[in-house]
Simulated assay, not measured.
Amino acid sequence: MNCPSCASETDPNATFCQHCGARLAGDDAQAEQAENDAEFPVPVTGTDPRSKFQQAAAARQTDDDHLEEDVWNGCYSPKAMIGWWIAAGVITILALVAGVLYLSNHFGWLFLALLIGWAALGGRYAYRRFGVHYYLTNQRFIHEAGILWRRIDRIELIDIDDVTFRQGPIERMFNVGTIHLLSSDVTDPTMNVPGIDDVRRVADLIDDLRRKERRRRGLHIEAV
Score class of each variant (00 low, 15 high):
S5P: 01
C6D: 12
C6W: 02
A7H: 14
S8P: 01
N13M: 10
N13C: 07
N13D: 11
A14C: 06
T15F: 00
F16Q: 06
Q18G: 15
Q18E: 06
Q18I: 03
H19R: 08
H19V: 04
G21N: 03
A25Q: 02
A25K: 03
G26D: 01
D27W: 01
D28G: 11
Q30Y: 01
E32M: 07
E35I: 04
A38T: 03
E39M: 06
E39Q: 12
P41H: 08
P41E: 07
V42I: 15
P43F: 09
V44R: 10
V44C: 11
T45I: 11
T47C: 12
D48M: 11
R50D: 09
S51F: 14
K52H: 04
F53I: 04
F53M: 07
A56N: 10
A57L: 15
T62Y: 13
T62F: 09
H66Q: 04
D70Y: 09
D70A: 15
S77E: 12
W84Y: 08
W84C: 05
W85P: 00
A87Q: 07
G89Q: 03
G89C: 04
I91H: 11
G99W: 13
G99T: 05
Y102D: 11
L103E: 11
S104M: 10
N105M: 09
N105F: 06
L110N: 08
F111W: 07
F111C: 01
G117F: 09
G117M: 05
G123Q: 05
Y125D: 12
A126S: 07
A126E: 03
R128A: 13
R129P: 15
R129Q: 10
R129G: 14
G131I: 13
Y134F: 14
Y135A: 08
T137S: 08
R140S: 00
F141T: 03
G146I: 00
R150D: 10
R151E: 13
R151K: 12
R154Q: 13
R154F: 11
D159L: 11
I160N: 00
D162G: 07
V163D: 00
P169K: 07
P169H: 05
P169T: 09
I170L: 07
R172Q: 08
F174V: 15
F174N: 02
V176N: 01
V176W: 00
H180L: 09
S183D: 14
V186H: 01
V186F: 06
D188L: 15
T190P: 05
T190S: 02
V193T: 15
P194T: 14
D197A: 15
D198Y: 06
V199W: 00
R201I: 14
A203T: 02
L205H: 02
L205K: 04
D208N: 06
L209T: 00
L209V: 03
R216P: 02
E222H: 10
A223V: 14
V224C: 01
